[in-house]
Amino acid sequence: MIKHIYTSALDFIEGQLSPDLLDTIDDLSRNLGGRKSDDFGYTPEQLKWVLPVAGFFYRRWFRTESVGLEQVPPGRVLLVSNHSGQIPIDAAMIAAALMLDAQQPRAVRSMVERWVPSLPYASVFFARLGQVLGTPENCRRLLEQAAPVLVFPEGARGISKPYKNAYQLQEFGHGFMRLALETGTPIVPVGVVGAEEQYLNIGNMDRAAKTLGIPAFPLIVNLLVPVLGWLPLPVKYRIYFGRPLYFEGDPEEDDIEIGKKVAVVKAAIDGLLKRGLSERDGYFL
């Protein structure tokens, strides 16, 4: 009985997805050589269940506009983006853009915070969809597999910042640049405009976060409205993919030299954000 319901539901969902998308998911499954999930626990079949929901938020809820998708080169690539919005919906929307709007759909692998594996359900959910703990070894392994890898060098500093700091890029980590230099991977800067307004954070309670052992404890105005307030505001998302940047140099260079290269990426993302902010006519348009 349960198996029958599962099969019928899967057939219905497959009917909703485009043939290109189904081919991409089937290719990813085939590449596993008869296994259901890869070494990281990534199960491409699970994308079929999530993509309709992601598609709803991408197309209807956030009415996302993706610009410059054609600039993402084939093969291994590091997508480096600003991080915002209190919960990582921006990551889901970037991934949805590459799956739903790219000429050749691509499944993105992204790096998650170190506390995610401690969370029940979320840890499994992220892992099955290809999200991997953000360690240099994991990122290197994924790049060796020629996967597009999404990183947020601002980390928790970016996603949990209060609204007064919206669209101000926080300090970038240097790890992504060292990996790009080591593996000869092009970097595509990505600017996400809109996510800052989905949840309005009026400040962080640092002491509460420390006590609970979590990266941040934001005070979010939306959550004062029961149930409906838990949903993100239906702001308009704009995702800008910049020209690929190629860097050369020694990955073991000191922080000052690496920092100069990181600043180039940061400036590129900042440029994309400024462009997005100038092009929008309001939070919802």
Binding site: R114, W115, S118, T135, E137, R141
Partner: peptide, 9 residues
Amino acid sequence: RPDNTQFLG
């Protein structure tokens, strides 16, 4: 451990 990388050397 929660912060173990996927494959430990």
